[in-house]
């Protein structure tokens, strides 16, 4: 995994992903589930304050479908301006 101080982006191995949905539970600000339980990632980089949560989401995935990839600082776009609103349903 990239060092804690580097900006990171979330990469999902779509073939491995089996729709367990733990990533969306642990990082609801950036990941929501579609109608069939598969993740939609909003935003290309993880804002600094969510780094630990992103790491935990990656570790929780039972099939190791998530990865954090370092994003070069020079080309890093602004963090997603809109975050997914916190879900009120139980998940």
């Amino acid at each position: 995994m990239p060092a804690p101080s580097e900006p990171v982006g979330i990469v999902i191995d779509r073939i491995r992903c089996d729709g367990h949905g733990m990533c969306a539970e642990l990082l609801p600000e950036l990941i929501e589930l579609d109608d069939w339980g598969y993740p939609i990632v909003h935003g290309t980089t993880v804002p600094g304050d969510l780094g630990e949560h992103a790491r935990r989401a990656v570790a929780a995935c039972p099939v190791l479908a998530l990865r954090l990839r370092p994003v070069p600082r020079a080309t890093m776009p602004a963090p997603a301006a809109t975050r997914v609103p916190a879900s009120t349903s139980g998940g």
Binding site: H20, G21, M22, E25, L26, A60, G90, G91
Partner: peptide
């Protein structure tokens, strides 16, 4: 993929 309100799935695996 068992879950309940108040018992999310990540809790099971962790």
């Amino acid at each position: 993929r068992w879950q309940r309100p108040g018992w999310p799935r990540f809790l099971t695996v962790e």
